[in-house]
Design a protein around this nucleic acid. Structure first.
Lengths: 245, 245
DNA sequence: GGGGAGAGATGCCGC
DNA sequence: GCGGCATTTCTCCCC
């Protein structure tokens, strides 16, 4: 099969909105939000039902080039090479793949209506704290979640045992400097908008970097070590325990 | 070809460190930094030379599940189904793909030693400002790039016409609230460490959000509209112009 | 569509 | 490995 035949196959597959997988030797040029060029090498090109395109090198996690869904693709045979020209006009983005050799091509209709279920997110953590406020400290009473301010959204907002307004910012990972500045922004905003001088700030995360800890304490805020809940993990443990009997 | 045959092909391909592309109907369970479950549907599974694994649904930009390079994969035939078990022990991550049907499978040795060249990054922007300080303002004299502080790295650091210390933070995209807090952090740090009360802060970006603008001005900082350079684009324009003659 | 913030963010570089 | 930070970040949600 020559490049000309592949051009026909690709054009037909695109017309039928099939999922296309192509392994080829190519060079790639991208122009849009940035500019990039990638010299000759072997890559996997994936064009999805929704016309999203991804290019993967044989190593590494992330795609080396890509374009969003709703991109238009056209196939041109030029100077003995196959040109896959992808264009996203609204975003002013262009991707040109110059294909010298096709290693394999597969296209077919794939169906998948499933949506992934994820547990252990920051939102799960925020819910857990809202429903189990003692995890923050005894006497903490949450008032609202996702409280909106001009300077941002507050994860959990409430009062402590003494009635002092308290802002809790959750991070599912190790809290860093930007987590502290985020909390600081919320606390300052609430102090100004409510006209009060005493507002507590608590950063809830599994751990915190050393510099973030220093900055947190400089600002009179507190750190509370809390892990995000992993519901599916808990579910699995129960399942396994039950299976054991 | 039945699932048993595919099991053999997959095992062999893994042993040979080939790049594997598999289209299949499957369910997926992930456990690691979080937990996830994805019900039965058609997906593309990609296992790379370096043992990174990516799972793509037929639509959407991002992989629905993935694991980093250096993951170990094993194939098990169980209850009439094919189980692809991926494990990253150091990271305590697990991915189980239960395959009910294989639509196609391809594996082969792909070679690619190329590294992508990208232009238009924040670093390019920082370099441009360092080499063309008048873009910031007349009389600005840069002293260093990537100046290190305990609270972070300063993009461009210098003095203005009046000799006042000036910190420039670059953003290649629309500057937001966190860009302002980042600049604020640097300015405060420099004021404390150098023991001076007057330090200018300039945010250089193509544009800025309305709230970020307000916060910036509240803090006495300035915004300078500057676009990141796209060298390849410029190169292309020259090429095209030359070709025109 | 803009703005704000999370993500299983990822990846890079520096210490 | 940790830390700080950019990313063609992407994606979601809300106004």
């Amino acid at each position: 099969m020559n490049l000309h035949d592949y051009a026909t196959l690709l054009t037909d597959a695109l017309a039928r909105n099939e999922t296309i997988v192509l392994a080829c030797t190519c060079t790639i040029r991208y122009s849009g939000r940035a500019e990039s060029f990638l010299g000759l090498g072997d890559r996997i090109v994936l064009i999805k039902n929704d016309k999203a395109i991804l290019v993967h090198q044989p190593m590494g996690n992330a795609p080396i080039n890509y374009m969003k869904p709703e991109t238009t693709h056209s196939i041109v045979f030029e100077n003995g090479k196959l040109l896959l020209k992808s264009k996203n006009t609204p975003m002013k983005e262009y991707l040109d793949i110059t294909i010298e050799r096709v290693h394999f091509l597969n296209s077919q209709r794939l169906e998948d209506g499933q949506t992934i279920i994820v547990a252990g997110t920051e939102e799960d953590m925020s819910n857990m704290l809202y429903n189990n406020p003692d995890l923050i400290e005894e006497g903490f009473r949450p008032v609202s979640q996702e409280e909106q301010t001009v300077y941002g959204f507050i994860d959990v907002f409430g009062t402590d045992k003494a009635g002092t307004l308290t802002i809790v910012e959750c991070k599912r990972y190790c809290a860093d400097l930007s987590a502290v500045t985020q909390l600081r922004r919320y606390v300052e905003k609430v102090m100004v908008s409510k006209g009060i001088s005493k507002v507590r700030g608590i950063l809830a995360a599994p751990k915190i970097t050393e510099n973030a800890k220093i900055m947190l304490e400089d600002w009179g805020f507190e750190f509370k070590s809390i892990k995000p809940p992993k519901y599916l993990e808990e579910f699995d443990k129960k399942q396994r325990t039950l299976e054991g009997f």
